[in-house]
Nucleic acid binder design. Structure first.
Length: 569
DNA sequence: GCCGTTTTCGGCCCGACTGTTTTCAGTCG
């Protein structure tokens, strides 16, 4: 993906410029552009050629994007790369070491990679430098150890669990009035690198003092009167900020971010002679805030409606809010069905009846049973005869269940050759046909794309599930021309799935945005293999919200009959 | 390097915590 490559280069340029002590705002421009490209699924060069303006990409950066797109490299970057040793870019990522110290170590001690820095810290050679003593040396060694153990990102679902445990315990701490999850967990990022929790209490320092005793706390990283950073037993960082209840809303805005959204919000306030910080919105020279208690009040103070956390990424939500065009985002309550459910018939762990009861208890009106097809042996894929017997069972169950309907479906493999794993005579009997790639991930982009497009063109295929095939933290999605997938889905009236399994979350928010723009229908399915996983629907809804989707964009917000009708037209 | 109902030049969000310091630089989010 070209955008990703340019984003990486801009990121590296920002690091190098920072180490060189360049203008911080120039650095920020590269970082912002890098982030923007990262979140733009369309080819940025093509957008620029088409005359589209990308916020934060001015004349110079646009030229660089075009240059890279044309030639596959960037002259300025190639020059810059040789200006500093590559190892400095690793050093600057060590927690506790920033650009200033990286430069200091290199200039004074010739340290050019992490190994050399580690050696120097061990031998106490760093403390000869101005502003460095034993504590800093220790912190640097800890930071290096953290990097080594791969302080990676954690799945959103895991972060939710940890956050829930901590909040449960916080509710028992004397003086705590209220707590809320903030940061990227609240924004429903698919993976996060830490957990942020905001607490309201009349006397913040008293609460902070109690927090080192939390069961989740294995180690204190930093502690002040209003903020504590700790590490859980699994090495996961948690930031807890305690504020008085009067400024809970302002603190929640600040602590939820994203950083880019906050910057935009504060810039907007500043242009109006206001200042926004975590304590409120302030008019110049005034001590009493104009707004602070609720998020709504903070946004209102700069004439904006409240913006849902999932949209706070500086991806156009400020402009939409100002124009009164914010979407009415889908909520979990809008969902009437789970469109992707497995059972014991293939690799699920429970009966169809158990899955139906679990979903009905969660407020669903229908579900699609989608067990695997025959070629997926590892998942005990169903032969046509098995499938027909399963359909008999479903028909029996439908007679027994009240106010709930089970639709007969199958997760049919798109074989490496691009064919479907069941004959048309079998597919015709199903209510819903889900198509999926489970093999041949390494095929070249053209072949994989064509293979999927071919499946989408099949008259019986209703939904393409986990469309990009990514597994978070394990494997990137396969090589796909997503725009071709979208246009094929649009042309053939095939829906794309937002797979809500915690490791997939596939499509992601950016893809959803594109799908909506392209007029492609979407569904959210949990891919549940047992009843507990039915709860993952909420993760899928979070992704849909990040993509700006409304209930009308998601087919399983419709009653069953309308769902079936829409699926086919 | 970007950007414009103060500006095409001169701004560019804001504060907490740490370690090393007697008032602040560096880092982080």
């Amino acid at each position: 993906m070209v955008n990703k490559e340019i984003a990486d280069i801009f990121h590296a340029i920002a690091d190098i410029l920072e180490i060189q002590g360049e203008n911080a705002f120039r650095v920020r421009a590269y970082r912002r552009a890098s982030q923007l490209l990262e979140n733009t699924p369309e080819n940025a060069a093509e957008l620029l050629v088409a005359g589209k303006h990308l916020p934060g990409i001015g004349h110079d950066l646009a030229q660089k994007i075009l240059e890279f797109s044309r030639t596959g490299s960037l002259g300025d970057y190639e020059k810059l790369k040789h200006a500093v040793p590559a190892g400095l870019l690793d050093i600057v990522r060590i927690p506790g070491v920033g650009p200033k110290r990286t430069k200091l170590f290199y200039d004074k001690l010739g340290i050019a990679d992490i190994a050399a820095l580690e050696q120097a810290a061990h031998n106490h050679r760093l403390r000869a430098l101005a502003g460095i003593k034993d504590k800093t040396e220790e912190h640097i060694l800890e930071g290096i150890a953290l990097i080594r153990q791969g302080s990676g990102r954690i799945l959103l679902a895991e972060a939710d669990e940890i956050a829930a445990e901590i909040r449960q315990e916080l509710s028992l701490v004397p003086g705590v009035r209220e707590s809320a999850v903030a940061g990227s967990v609240r924004r429903r990022r698919e993976t996060v690198h830490d957990i942020d929790i905001l607490v309201a209490a009349a006397r913040p320092p008293a609460v902070i003092d109690a927090l080192p005793r939390l069961r989740a706390c294995a180690e204190i990283i930093a502690q002040g009167p209003t903020k504590i950073s700790l590490r859980t037993h699994r090495g996961f960082p948690v930031d807890i900020r305690v504020v008085v209840p009067e400024c809970f809303g302002a603190a929640l805005v600040y602590f939820t971010g994203s950083p880019a959204h906050n910057v935009r919000l504060r810039e907007l306030a500043k242009r109006r002679g206001l200042k926004i910080n975590e304590y409120g919105v302030f008019a110049e020279g005034r001590e009493q805030p104009l707004a602070a208690a609720s998020e709504e009040a903070v946004y209102q103070a700069v004439d904006l409606p409240w913006i849902a956390p999932e949209l706070r990424e500086d991806q156009g939500e400020m402009e939409q809010a100002a124009a009164g065009n914010l979407p009415r985002l889908i909520t979990a309550a809008d969902i009437r069905a789970d469109t992707h459910v497995h059972s014991q018939w293939s690799d699920g762990r429970q009966s169809i009846r158990a899955m139906a009861q679990a979903l009905q208890a969660r407020g669903c009106e229908y579900m699609v049973i989608a067990d695997h097809s025959q070629s997926l042996g590892i998942a005990r894929g169903l032969k046509p005869d098995d499938l027909r017997r399963q359909m008999d069972e479903i028909r029996q169950l439908n007679k027994q269940l009240k106010n709930f309907r089970i639709l007969c479906g199958a997760e049919v493999d798109i074989t490496a050759g691009g064919n479907l794993d069941f004959e048309d005579t079998v597919l015709r009997e199903l209510d819903v046909v889900l198509a999926a790639v489970h093999s041949g991930f390494r095929q070249p982009q053209e072949q994989l794309t064509q293979r999927i497009v071919h499946a989408l063109e099949h008259p019986y295929v209703d939904i393409l599930v986990h469309p990009t095939g990514r597994l978070l933290g394990e494997r990137a999605g396969y090589a796909l021309d997503f725009e071709r997938i979208l246009s094929a889905a649009r042309r053939t009236h095939t829906a794309l799935e937002i797979n809500a399994s915690p490791k997939r979350l596939d499509l992601d928010g950016a893809h959803c945005r594109l799908a909506k723009q392209a007029g492609v229908k979407l569904v959210i399915g949990t891919d549940s293999h047992d009843t507990a996983q039915c709860a993952h629907m909420e993760l899928g809804v979070g992704i849909a919200r990040r993509g700006g989707l409304e209930a009308a964009d998601v087919l399983n917000c419709l009653p069953c009959e309308q769902f079936l009708q829409k699926l086919r037209t």
